[in-house]
């Protein structure tokens, strides 16, 4: 097993005809993921072609899901229209919407998150690298790649990875792969202050997943999400967890690319979060180079 998505998960791409969406739809197809539909309003009936594969394009998410059996959407829609794209996924009752788009207005996300209450669709992101459940083929091909992560750095195995940051996730995944430790699923929850799925939500899924034996949780300064997850881990998590917090050197009050990564008060610092991680039994990586080793110090695989 894995969490959220499996090798055979059927994916639709919102914004497949834009440069960004098209590029990553092609990379997902190359990786062997089941990209079965595209959605661009007004371009229904057209076909997205890549390497001999034909992906039909639909006007609406509901139509795409109905015709192709897609259950998950990858959203590459530009920021002014992205919240609308997310809401369309809720309406179509998809299992999962993964919003890659960076720069969505906070107010739009506040409304979208409120609209998510009572719906069955889970939202990952926005402003996130997406999700990868590695495949069992050469360089992990044949897996489910939703979003913008490089597929080949992965390897199928038993470590779950959850992070707000894209490149920091790749760093952790690559460290694991280089040490021969594969991943069950890697989830980028995004760097925005309002997101659909939290660190804790993903940790709970990993805790219940029989294929996941150990977890790496990567956090940042800003907000309380990592602390919430750490406290839950201390009480409930059955699996070894390693963690890293970025932003020890970030000045207070400055936004560092991720809107979420702004230091608020005295307790919202990297040092404070690291201390709580340690108190909760999480093996803390002293540097970002040490993420895989921090896990291997408490878990032999």
């Amino acid at each position: 097993m894995s969490i959220l998505v499996k090798e055979d998960t059927r994916i639709l791409v919102q914004g497949i005809t834009g440069d960004f969406g098209a590029r990553h739809a092609r990379l997902s197809l190359d990786y062997g993921s089941q990209v079965v539909a595209g959605v661009t309003p007004g371009k229904g009936g057209q076909v997205f072609e890549h390497a001999g594969k034909k992906v039909p394009i639909f006007n609406t998410v509901a139509e795409a899901a109905k015709q192709t059996g897609a259950t998950v959407s990858a959203i590459f829609v530009p920021p002014p229209f992205a919240a609308d794209a997310i809401l369309e996924c809720f309406d179509a009752d998809l299992d999962l919407a993964v919003a890659i788009t960076e720069g969505i207005p906070v107010r739009d996300m506040v409304r979208a998150k409120r609209a998510m209450a009572g719906r069955r669709t889970r939202l990952i992101g926005p402003n996130c690298p997406g999700i990868v459940t590695p495949g069992r083929g050469d360089k992990s091909s044949g897996g489910c790649r939703i979003g913008i992560a490089p597929g080949y750095i992965h390897m199928r195995g038993n470590v779950g990875v959850v992070s707000r940051s894209g490149t920091l996730t790749y760093e952790a995944v690559w460290q694991l792969t280089c040490r021969g430790k594969g991943q069950s699923t890697c989830v980028g929850i995004g760097g925005d202050p309002v997101n659909g799925t939290s660190h804790l939500d993903v940790i709970k899924l990993f805790n219940d997943d029989p294929e996941t034996d150990a977890i790496i949780m990567i956090g940042e300064i800003g907000g309380n999400a990592e602390v919430e997850a750490a406290r839950w881990i201390k009480e409930h998590c059955k699996k070894p967890v390693a963690g890293f917090i970025a932003g020890a050197t970030a000045p207070a009050g400055r936004r560092m690319g991720h809107a979420g990564a702004v230091i608020g008060g005295a307790e919202d610092t990297a040092a404070a979060k690291i201390k709580i991680f340690e108190e909760c039994g999480i093996s803390v990586a002293a540097t970002p180079s040490d993420m895989a080793d921090a896990l291997l110090r408490i878990w032999k695989g």
Partner: peptide
């Protein structure tokens, strides 16, 4: 490249006794 990696690059410079001059993503 990337905000999270950029922040943690500043952190690792400090960890090894240096002092970062900037954040640049």
């Amino acid at each position: 490249n990337g905000a999270g990696l950029a922040m943690s690059t500043m952190d690792i410079i400090q960890h090894f006794g240096g002092s970062p001059a900037n954040f640049l993503d």
